[in-house]
Design a protein around this nucleic acid. Structure first.
Lengths: 117, 117
DNA sequence: ACTCTGTTTCGACATCTGTCAAGATAAGCA
DNA sequence: TGCTTATCTTGACAGATGTCGAAACAGAGT
């Protein structure tokens, strides 16, 4: 059945040479899922465009209600993609570079990916 | 109230300097969403680990039924992450490097991102 | 015809999305 | 101190969407 499993030594290609383990997938998939909503993707993008972002700015940038934005931010927080801190009246959010690095590393370096097809 | 938008010339940073537009988010989010399931993440990983992967091998690698695997593959196909072709009895899947490149480009290279925190 | 492979259809069940209302925390002012 | 306002989060809810398996269907080879 199993077509001869390739033993490519090439360490270059998309998604990394060693297939993602079941445990890895369980821990990383929630991050992708969190980015799988247009509103959340834009939220992360807006937060990443600045060192920190105030929630009031984020709410103003979307046609969504405050609670909804807060919900999305909670999802992003629980996924480990962003973190926040309350300073006085306002709450500030910032991205966690190490989380994005993990995802980027998993996707590989596409610029160097062999144009296999 | 937007804190002064950074005018960093560095093209390096997380999620790209210009925030993702609404239209971009709508078109890219489905890809992340497709990767947001552990089974699909592993599927893409397994497919990417070889030039091509036969469905029979993929089904054998999961504790899920054939129809379920087929369903997940359809989601990945519709998201544009993989493509397939029937050759005789078997169906072969391969990843679309340009799609992964798009996602990776969006995530940027956070390792070189300013250690803002 | 028969078998094998893979997809599609259909249904049950669970999870997610977005809104309203209420709660928690902090600042401003008398 | 006490009252008021502003900011943000949480809880509860209806509607939409996703997950998965059983059965039925379609292609390719024997």
């Amino acid at each position: 059945m199993t077509t001869t499993r390739l033993t490519l030594a090439a360490p270059c290609c998309a998604l990394g040479a060693p297939p993602v383990s079941s445990a890895e997938a369980e821990s990383i998939a929630p991050m992708f899922k969190a980015l799988g909503d247009p509103a959340r993707l834009r939220l992360v993008s807006l937060i990443a465009a600045q060192p920190e972002a105030c929630v009031c700015d984020l709410v103003a940038a979307f046609p969504l209600s405050g609670p909804t934005i807060s919900h999305h931010l909670k999802v992003l927080r629980q996924a480990g993609l962003v973190d926040c801190e309350r300073r006085g009246t306002w709450v500030y959010y910032w991205v966690r570079p190490e989380a994005l690095a993990q995802l980027s590393a998993l996707l590989g370096r596409p610029t160097s990916a062999a144009a296999s097809r």
